[in-house]
Amino acid sequence: MSAAKTTSVSSFKIGPLVLRLHLVLVLLFLYVPIIVMAALSFNQSQLYELPFTFDLVWYKSLAGDSRLIDAGINSVVIAVINTVVATVLGTMAALAFARYQFRGKSLLQLLLFPPITIPWLVIGTAMLVFFFWTGIGRGLHAILLGHVALSLPYVIIVVGARLANFPRQMEEAAATLGATPWQTFWRVTAPILAPGVIAAALFAFAVSFDQFVISYFLAPPGVTTLPVAIYAAIRKGFTPEINAISTIIIVVSMGIMLITARFYRFGGER
C-alpha cells in the first residue's frame, strides 16, 4: 500500500504533465455520460432541454410508477436471495477445492472460467432452452436459478483467492489448543476468511442486480426486474424518469463496488 503510494507520488513529480492529463481524460471518458445522465434526472424539462432547472419531479413521478417499483422490488429480492445462496454454495465449493483432493478436481476448476467469458446472451439462450425443455419454465424462480449459476464462479474464484493465502498452521494451532474442528472453523477459519466472503457476496449481489440479458430471457410476461423494466420503458419513449431510476441504480452499484474494494483490495492482502 505505502509502496504504491510512493511510486505514484514520485512518478507525478518526475513524469510529465501528460500523465496527469491522460488520467483526467480517462476519468472524464468514464464518468461524463453518467454525470450528464444523473444531472438530467434533476432537470425539469421532459425533452432534456436546457437551461438546467433543478426539480425532483422525475423522482416524484418515479415514486408513483408501480411498474418500475415492482420491478425494483423483484430485483432487490432476487439479488438478496441470490447473494445468500451463491455465497454459501460458492464458499463451500471454494473450501472443497482448497482442502480436498478428489477426482476431476482440476477439470472442475478449469471449467469455472468459461462461464465468465461466454457472452450472457449465449448463456441466456441456453438457459431459456434448457428451462423450457426440463419444465422449469420461466418466472422469478428461473431468474433466480440463472443468477445463482452466473454468480457462483465469481464467488468461488474470489473466496478461493483468499483461501490460497490461508495459513493452515492457524487451524493446526487452534487444534493443539484444544479447539474442536467446529470451534476451529467458526473462531479461526471463518473470521480470517470473512473479508473474502464479504467481497464475494458483494460481487454476487452486483452480478444479479445489474443482470439484464438472463432476466429478460427468463421473465414471463407481466413479471420484470428493474433492468428489464427500464429497457421496456425506453422502447416506449425516453423520459427523465429513466434517468432518475438509473441514477439510483448507479449510486447503489457504486456504493457496493466501493465497499467491495474496501474488503477485497483486488487480490492483495489488506
Binding site: 493446526e172 476451529t184 473470521p191
Partner: peptide, 20 residues
C-alpha cells in the same frame, strides 16, 4: 486420539498467531 484432545502445546515456525 485427535489433536485437540491430546493436550499438547505447540509453537509453530511462523507462530501462527490468530491475526483477528
Amino acid at each position: 486420539t485427535p489433536v485437540h484432545q491430546r493436550n499438547i502445546g505447540m509453537v509453530f515456525q511462523n507462530y501462527a498467531l490468530f491475526p483477528h
